[in-house]
Design a protein around this nucleic acid. Structure first.
Length: 480
RNA sequence: CGGGGCGUGGCGCAGCCCGGUAGCGCGCACGGUUUGGGUCCGUGAGGUCCCCGGUUCGAAUCCGGGCGCCCCGACCA
């Protein structure tokens, strides 16, 4: 590490983010513009996200499959709004095998079209429904301004695609998957997301309705962290996805799609991180506990290492992800700082004194300095560590929720909205405006409607901009 | 696509104005020293100075052209 500390969040949040992503070894620059290499430490966080989601998908009856990276250009063009939404950011292969292709191939920006085409073959009758498919894949969207994890030209995600017999079943699926995203975000990533519906302007190209989980980052900007779309019959009509009903009638299916990407890694970084670096929620942390052995002289080495190995085995046997820092060149002090920067929830120090007293020193990452440090007996270490990890997981969520709630303000009129947004916070307001009105707010304040939260007041009110009657409140914020 | 900046060991930079043996910090390797909050010392490895052309006895440095990257403004998981 050349410089010692990272840039403070308060000083320059985006610089802090960039530094921490590279210095904590989550990612490395790639030779291709707009792309990143995801390094093992970052990829392990993604693997944790995958595991948490995949388990929930399977539990709700979904199966994984894999569809091709390349999509015939004509497919993309079949659904009008879809083309319009995506064409500016498509990467297209025009040459292969040394000659020009008869039909260019689009590198998938998402797979509604290929999957829709496949579904039209697979589905014959109502007995084939619902069809519940998910794929883990990479997609490419040629973005101009990129940031590691938050927006890159290529990213990893999962995309679920389902087909149903009725609108209501599709709607139920769309909402169920949003619930799964929210549950995962809150329980595993410790990110207190807000569920809601997107405005017409922010809706997925070709969807009837788009739902979202919105999270507040430490700089108070909003991050759309997962989306779920009810596609109605738009794609079914474009790709001829039909089924025969019990009474032998041809009907179009109702389809859905839903996705969550490696952006979630960025969300974890920006929700919990502090001036010292990452703070990883135990459920997603590649290492939940790091043991730093402290040996003053060579003759103490064996005794210390024996204890370290024994505790390592005990914790591992209990299913805790432990890492022993055996590096020889670095001092303990260096290692403490290093692991703090990398966000490991619990550090265990074992030195000669601890061997002698049958103690261990535990330091928790979510509380600063001395406050987070405690001496505990080695006997019963598994229970203590397990409880501590649970406590840290809960504490990170509480912290983030408290921060979020403190920075959302109800506003009664447009001036207040402007002021709240100018201060960087989120504004909650009645909204009954048109698309144009929404754009006006965006132009004048930089904020967009993040969502209409599911959680709505009982009464109705007056639109914050037009002062006409409004049925729903919306959340306004600057977003990534 | 408009405005600004930068291309020099792995990373961050100095050198360029005023042409003359390519330098510093970090990292890396080795040896020693240290180790309970970012040890210290020594030795060493490592560079087509973005590319092409020009000027010159001589170009990282001057001139012309090209390429690439980063930052700031309109779209997006």
């Amino acid at each position: 590490m050349s410089e010692q500390a990272v840039t403070a969040q308060s000083e320059d949040f985006s610089r802090w983010y960039n530094e921490i992503v590279y210095r904590a070894d989550l990612a490395a620059p790639s030779p291709v513009r707009g792309c990143v290499i995801i390094k093992p430490y970052g990829y392990e966080i993604w693997e944790g996200i995958k595991a948490g989601l995949d388990r929930r998908f399977k539990a709700t009856g979904h199966q994984n499959a894999y569809f091709p990276l390349f999509i015939p250009e004509s497919y993309i063009k079949r659904e009008a709004q879809h083309v319009e939404g995506f064409s500016p950011e498509l990467a297209v292969v025009t040459h292969a095998g040394g000659k020009e292709l008869e039909e260019p191939l689009v590198v998938r920006p998402t797979s509604e079209t290929v999957i829709g085409e496949a579904f039209s073959d697979w589905i014959q009758s109502y007995r084939d429904l619902p069809l519940l498919i998910n794929q883990w894949a990479n997609v490419v969207r040629w973005e101009l301004r990129t940031r590691p994890f938050l927006r890159t030209a290529e990213f990893l995600w999962q995309e679920g695609h389902t087909a149903h017999a009725t609108h209501d079943e599709a709607e139920a699926e769309t909402l169920q998957m949003l619930d799964i995203y929210a549950e995962f975000a809150i329980d595993d990533a410790a990110i207190p997301v807000i569920k809601g519906e997107k405005s017409r302007l922010e809706r997925f190209a070709g969807a009837l309705r788009t739902y979202t989980i919105e999270a507040m980052m430490r700089d108070k900007r909003a991050l759309q962290s997962g989306t779920s779309h009810n596609l109605g019959q738009n794609f079914a009509k474009a790709f001829d996805i039909r089924y025969l009903t019990e009474s032998n009638l041809q009907e179009y299916c109702w389809t859905t799609s839903w996705g969550l990407s490696t952006r979630m890694v960025g969300a974890v970084v920006m929700t919990h991180g502090d001036d010292k670096g990452l703070r990883l929620p135990p459920k997603l942390a590649p290492h939940q506990v790091v043991i730093v052995p402290i040996t003053r002289r060579d003759d103490q080495l064996t005794a210390v290492m024996d204890t370290v190995e024994r505790l390592d085995r005990e914790l591992q046997a209990a299913g805790i992800r432990v890492h022993v820092d055996r590096r020889e060149g670095q001092s303990p002090g260096f290692k403490f700082n290093d692991w703090e920067m990398r966000g490991v929830p619990v550090r265990m120090e074992i030195g000669p004194k601890d061997v002698e007293n049958n103690n261990a020193v535990l330091a928790r990452r979510d509380l600063p300095g001395r406050q987070g440090k405690q001496f505990v007996p080695q006997a019963g270490i598994v229970d203590v560590v397990t409880a501590l990890l649970d406590e840290i997981q809960a504490n990170l969520l509480d912290d983030a929720r408290e921060f979020r709630d403190r920075n959302i303000h109800d506003v009664a009129n447009y001036d207040e909205l402007k002021q709240v947004v100018a201060e960087g916070a989120w504004a909650r307001a009645w909204w009954g405006g048109s698309d144009e009105d929404e754009l006006t707010v965006k132009d004048e304040t930089g904020a967009t409607i993040r969502c209409f939260p599911f959680d709505q007041p009982d009464q109705s009110g007056k639109c914050v901009l037009t002062e006409k009657a409004a049925e729903r409140i919306a959340l306004f914020a600057k977003a990534y």
